[in-house]
């Protein structure tokens, strides 16, 4: 390849950073400067861990930790003390992403790992739920990611279908999607690193995540913990789903060649 008209290196991180800034601003406006303090701490921590791993590995692994920190800052319960938030974010950055060699080499969304750590270790009440402004901002961010094809519409459609199907089966289940759910879908479940990487697999992955969210929510989890743990579980199953799709593709091509 000699002279491609445009290169995509690093653009995904930029697009995601732009997309997450809308709900970030909405959250900060709603909850005041406390978030701003944590956002600053989070960005500092992300830079710190990236520098540490760049030194250990002797190669720079990109700026994606900043995106992780921003997503975490939007979703983390505000009642959590600052040091606990910092600990959880560090865990997510290191164990969810950097130990694997950076963005694109792990198999889970680092923000989901960080949030799961926080929810497991320091149970607090979720506090005030994000308001409608956050929901609208989350939708705008999701639309931007869909347009940039970072977020797959197949994951979103599979997710919505599964949730709708479960609603129909059991009408008592949670009705309107709140801001937390949208944010979780766009930034945690929809993270391309965590999601399945084949088109058929994306449908299955989205549906699995949707079903898990609905199940966990009826089982009594809050909106945040349901979406976070659904993202983790679905992410763990994503490679298995892809293996199924690969197996089917190989079998179909072999059959076509025998009869072709």
């Amino acid at each position: 390849m000699s002279d491609a008209p445009r290169l995509w290196s690093g653009s995904e991180a930029l697009v995601t950073l732009v997309a997450v800034s809308a709900p970030l601003v909405a959250t900060i406006l709603q909850q005041g400067p406390a978030r701003l303090v944590f956002l600053a701490l989070g960005l500092g921590l992300a830079t710190f861990w990236h520098l540490v791993f760049a030194r250990i590995r002797r190669r720079w692994t990109g700026w994606d930790g900043l995106v992780t920190a921003a997503i975490f800052a939007v979703l983390v319960p505000e009642a959590l003390p600052l040091w606990q938030q910092g600990l959880a974010l560090s865990f997510g950055l290191v164990m969810g992403d950097l130990v694997f060699g950076g963005r694109g080499r792990g198999f889970l969304s680092p923000a989901a790992v960080a949030l799961a750590f926080a929810l497991f270790s320091f149970p607090v009440s979720a506090g005030a739920a994000p308001g409608p402004a956050s929901a609208i901002a989350a939708l705008a961010g999701g639309a931007a990611l869909l347009l940039a094809r970072v977020l797959s519409w197949r994951v979103v459609a599979g997710f919505a279908l599964a949730m709708a199907a479960l609603q129909l089966l059991q009408p008592g289940w949670p009705a309107l999607p709140g801001a937390t759910l949208i944010l979780g879908l766009v930034f945690l479940i929809g993270d391309p690193v965590a999601a399945a990487c084949t088109n058929a697999g994306r449908w299955v992955y989205g549906a699995l995540a949707g079903a898990l969210v609905a199940l966990l929510e009826t089982a009594g989890g809050g909106a945040l913990s349901s979406v976070v743990f659904a993202a983790l579980l679905a992410g763990i199953f994503a490679s298995l789903i892809d293996q199924g799709v690969i197996w089917d593709n190989v079998r179909r091509r072999a059959r076509r060649q025998r009869h072709g």
Binding site: G10, E12, G62, G102, R103, G104, R105, V150, P192
Partner: peptide, 12 residues
């Protein structure tokens, strides 16, 4: 962009 990651981001 120059500080790209060196790994594939499996987008659609």
């Amino acid at each position: 962009r120059q500080s790209g990651t060196g790994a594939t981001l499996p987008s659609e």
